[in-house]
C-alpha cells in the first residue's frame, strides 16, 4: 500500500518535472504566434512576427553566418576528428594519456575561459601580424576546436565496436591502405561520421559564449543577434527566431541520434 503511494507520487513528480523542463520552450513557441505585442496575454494566432523576420536584413545575415559557421566548422572538424579517432583506435595499445588529456581539454574547459582565451590570443596575433582579425574565420577556428573531441570520440567508439579480425581480413586480401580506407573503413563508419557531423552542427548552432567572444562586428550569428535584441528589450520577434532555431536543432539532433543508432545495430 505504502509502496503504491510512493510510486504514484513519483509519477506525479515526474510529470511536474517534465512540465518544468518544457514550459520555457513552449512559452517561446506559443508566443511566437501571438497576434498581440505582449508576453503576458495571448490574443490570437498570427504569423506577423515571422513575416517581420523575412524583412529584417540583420537577421537574414545572422542566419547566413550561423549556417556558414556551422557547416564549414563541422566539415573541418569531421576530417580532423575522424583522423584522430582512427589513430586512437589503431594505436590504442600505446600509452596515449597525453592525447586523451588534449582531447578532453576543450570539453572540460569552462566556456567563458575558452572564449576569452581565444579572444585574447587572436587579438594579440592580429596586433602583431595583422592576420586573424575577429570575424567568421576566428569563429570557425574556435568552433572546430571544440568539435574535434566529439567527432574523435564518436569515430573511436565506432571502431572499437567493430570486429578487429575485419581489419586482418582486409589486409589478407592484399588491399592497399588506400583501398582499405575507401572500400572498408569509410563505408563501415559512415553512420558514425554522419552522426558526428550532425552533432558538431548542433554544438555549433547551440554555442553562444565562444562565438560571442570571437565574433567580429560583421559576423554576428543568430544567438548573438538574439542576445543583442534581448539586451535592447524583449520583443515578440525574438520568439519567432527562437522557435525556428528550436525546430532546426531538434531536427539535427534527431538525425544525429538516428544515424548513431543505425551504426550500432
Amino acid at each position: 500500500m505504502r509502496k503504491r503511494t510512493l510510486q504514484r507520487s513519483l509519477t506525479g513528480f515526474w510529470w511536474l518535472t517534465l512540465f518544468f523542463l518544457y514550459v520555457p520552450l513552449l512559452v517561446v513557441v506559443v508566443f511566437s504566434f501571438n497576434a498581440a505585442n505582449s508576453a503576458a496575454s495571448f490574443t490570437g494566432v498570427s504569423l506577423r512576427w515571422y513575416r517581420r523576420l523575412l524583412g529584417n536584413e540583420q537577421i537574414l545575415s545572422a542566419f547566413a553566418n550561423s549556417m556558414i559557421l556551422a557547416i564549414v566548422s563541422s566539415i573541418v572538424a569531421l576530417v580532423i576528428g575522424c583522423l584522430i579517432g582512427y589513430g586512437m583506435y589503431r594505436h590504442r595499445h600505446r600509452k596515449l594519456g597525453w592525447l586523451i588529456a588534449l582531447i578532453y581539454l576543450p570539453i572540460v574547459l569552462p566556456d567563458i575561459v575558452f572564449g576569452i582565451s581565444e579572444m585574447a590570443f587572436f587579438v594579440q596575433i592580429n596586433r602583431l601580424t595583422g592576420v586573424l582579425g575577429p570575424g567568421l574565420l576566428t569563429m570557425i577556428i574556435s568552433h572546430v576546436t571544440f568539435q574535434i573531441p566529439f567527432v574523435a570520440l564518436i569515430v573511436y567508439s565506432r571502431f572499437v565496436g567493430l570486429d578487429p579480425t575485419l581489419f586482418e581480413a582486409a589486409k589478407d586480401l592484399y588491399a592497399t591502405p588506400w583501398q582499405r580506407a575507401r572500400f572498408f573503413m569509410l563505408p563501415t563508419i559512415k553512420p558514425a561520421l554522419i552522426s558526428a557531423f550532425f552533432l558538431s552542427f548542433t554544438l555549433s548552432i547551440d554555442d553562444f559564449v565562444i562565438s560571442f567572444f570571437t565574433a567580429g562586428p560583421e559576423s554576428a550569428t543568430l544567438p548573438i543577434y538574439i542576445w543583442g535584441a534581448i539586451k535592447k528589450g524583449v520583443s515578440p520577434e525574438i520568439n519567432a527566431i527562437a522557435t525556428l532555431m528550436i525546430g532546426a536543432v531538434a531536427i539535427a539532433a534527431v538525425l544525429s541520434l538516428m544515424f548513431n543508432r543505425q551504426g550500432r545495430r
Binding site: F31, S38, D206, P223, I226, V234, I238, A253
Partner: peptide, 28 residues
C-alpha cells in the same frame, strides 16, 4: 524518458534563458 529529460538542453542557452525571462516578466 532519458531523452525527454535531455532534449531541452539541446536548444541554445540564450533561448532557454529567454524563455524564463518570458515566464518571469511582469504581468505573467
Amino acid at each position: 524518458m532519458l531523452l525527454l529529460v535531455v532534449v531541452p538542453s539541446w536548444t541554445n542557452q540564450v533561448i532557454r534563458t529567454f524563455g524564463w525571462m518570458n515566464l518571469l516578466a511582469p504581468g505573467t
